Amino acid sequence: MSESLITKQAIADGFKGLMRIKSFDKITISDIAKSCGLNRQTFYYHFQDKYELLDWIYYNEAISVMTEGLTFENWSSRIYRMLTQMKKEDYFYINAFKASGQKEFEAYLFSVAKELFKEIITNLSGEKEIKLEDMDFIASFFSYGTVGIIVAWAQEGMRESPEFLKERFENLVLDSKNLAVKRFLSAL
């Protein structure tokens, strides 16, 4: 691991430690730097502000866990891994999402989900050619639903288990795959 990555991880760990005791909005750059034994300048060398740090944590500790090697065949296990990672540090995600710090997380997760749903639609359409706007509409519909559920789950305190959500997603996608999407495609 590079020295820069080690420093970024130390800053992230300090920040997450502070999130256990303070709300996101009350944490300053000075607080973060102090918590990990660095000065403010070192923080600014690695991150522009605490929102960029938040995005870095989202990507490196949740999104990349899901997206690495993501395929149609393994999507539910990847979502489960991401949800499990989020649940493991629920204090952090709940606090960050309450502070409207989920926009980057939400946008990135949406783009990943949309590509996955496009793959599902392509597989279901077989030989039938689908207009790009129809493909985009269907993929967006399912992506907004999936991402919305994950964000609401975090904002509402992650009461359900990752296993429960994974099963719900599997049932919904499999049911949709066999019913709603096929009906929509046959109507085109």
Results as ranks from 00 to 15, higher is better:
120 I>P: 06
104 E>C: 12
163 E>S: 09
100 S>K: 14
111 S>W: 09
175 D>S: 15
82 M>C: 09
113 A>L: 06
100 S>V: 13
5 L>W: 09
32 I>P: 06
133 E>H: 07
47 F>S: 03
160 E>Y: 06
115 E>D: 08
54 L>I: 11
159 R>P: 08
21 I>A: 09
39 N>C: 08
44 Y>E: 05
179 L>M: 14
40 R>A: 14
18 L>M: 14
146 T>R: 00
86 M>W: 06
101 G>S: 03
68 E>T: 15
63 I>A: 11
1 M>F: 12
32 I>Y: 03
135 M>H: 08
108 Y>S: 13
93 Y>R: 05
157 G>M: 02
186 S>T: 05
69 G>T: 00
14 G>N: 05
9 Q>I: 08
140 S>Y: 01
111 S>I: 12
61 E>L: 13
40 R>M: 09
27 I>M: 10
127 E>A: 04
42 T>M: 00
37 G>I: 06
91 Y>D: 09
23 S>P: 10
104 E>N: 13
123 N>T: 11
27 I>T: 00
84 T>H: 11
85 Q>C: 01
123 N>S: 11
153 W>H: 02
158 M>K: 05
170 E>G: 04
5 L>Q: 15
50 K>G: 02
48 Q>R: 15
37 G>H: 06
72 F>C: 13
150 I>T: 00
77 S>Y: 12
149 I>V: 03
5 L>I: 12
31 D>P: 04
23 S>T: 13
21 I>C: 04
145 G>W: 03
2 S>K: 00
81 R>L: 15
165 L>V: 03
123 N>R: 12
99 A>N: 01
141 F>K: 01
13 D>N: 00
41 Q>A: 14
88 K>Q: 11
17 G>W: 01
45 Y>K: 15
14 G>A: 08
163 E>W: 02
64 S>C: 14
166 K>H: 06
177 K>E: 10
110 F>H: 07
35 S>E: 10
161 S>C: 01
133 E>K: 15
72 F>I: 15
134 D>A: 14
59 Y>I: 12
15 F>L: 05
78 R>D: 11
175 D>P: 09
39 N>G: 11
104 E>R: 13
16 K>E: 08
87 K>T: 11
42 T>R: 08
106 E>M: 07
131 K>N: 07
3 E>Y: 05
11 I>P: 07
28 T>M: 05
154 A>K: 00
77 S>C: 09
24 F>A: 09
107 A>I: 01
84 T>A: 07
114 K>T: 02
17 G>M: 07
142 F>V: 05
55 D>K: 02
186 S>E: 02
90 D>C: 14
61 E>D: 13
73 E>A: 10
98 K>Q: 13
68 E>R: 12
82 M>I: 00
59 Y>L: 09
127 E>I: 01
39 N>F: 07
90 D>Q: 15
154 A>F: 10
114 K>V: 04
47 F>E: 01
140 S>Q: 00
132 L>D: 13
54 L>H: 09
142 F>R: 02
171 N>W: 06
80 Y>L: 14
